[in-house]
């Protein structure tokens, strides 16, 4: 069975838990205390995840330590054509772009959310300003997408793992004092993700 080493309040961890739920996959959750114990920085956890990154997915001999790798693996292994458009090079490229965008969100909106609530050191003003710039770009992309009949971050009739990877950081942005009121297309997109069959919440996220 898949094992997931994870912290309940991790947005990256939530992306993986959400995708596992959407795929209907069972897994074993192994809690890691990020705050306040910083268990992810301990020797035992670094043996598994040398960069001390959370979550970590273990499936047999395979150990994956970054959300982009984990979602890509799960999509290719269990997602079928719906989640892994194997023959569509352009779409795979766009999904890769979207996963990189989620890493930018993690470094800004995600970092300021954690630093704020858990009182960790960070230049919050700079992180917020960059997060808002990213959200503006995403809001415009979604707005133009909607006008063209597309509901998701990458064009096409179905959501992709880019949506799943970006969703947690955006839906939780207000915890880092980044209001979403100014991004109407983003708010409609958040509601579409919430209505996906199998959607699950995490503490701080509410359902449709």
């Amino acid at each position: 069975m898949i094992a997931l080493h994870d912290y309940d309040l991790s947005a990256e961890g939530y992306a993986v838990r959400l995708f596992l739920a959407l795929l209907g996959l069972d897994y074993r959750l192994l809690p890691v205390e990020f705050y306040p114990a910083r268990e992810h920085e301990g020797e035992e956890f670094r043996a598994l995840s040398p960069m001390a990154s959370l979550p970590v997915l273990v499936d047999g001999d395979l150990v994956l330590t970054e959300v982009a790798g984990i979602l890509s693996y799960l999509a290719a292994r269990h997602g079928g054509a719906d989640w892994y458009p194997a023959g569509d090079a352009a779409q795979l490229g766009r999904i890769g772009d979207g996963l990189a965008l989620s890493a930018r969100l993690a470094a800004t909106a995600g970092a300021v959310r954690l630093a704020d609530g858990m009182m960790l050191p960070l230049d919050g003003a700079a992180a917020r300003a960059e997060a808002k710039r990213l959200l503006r770009v995403i809001d415009e992309r979604l707005w133009f997408g909607e006008a063209a009949g597309d509901d998701w971050l990458c064009p096409g009739p179905r959501p992709s793992i880019a949506d799943i990877a970006c969703f947690p950081h955006i839906v939780l942005a207000e915890e880092g004092d980044i209001p979403l009121i100014d991004y109407p297309a983003i708010r409609r997109w958040l509601d579409r993700v919430r209505r996906l069959p199998g959607f699950v919440v995490m503490p701080g996220v509410f359902g449709a």
Binding site: D8, Y35, G117, E174, E175, P203
Partner: peptide
């Protein structure tokens, strides 16, 4: 406790 409190925070 964290899980409960983080539901109250928003």
């Amino acid at each position: 406790q964290q899980q409960i409190f983080v539901q109250d925070k928003p």
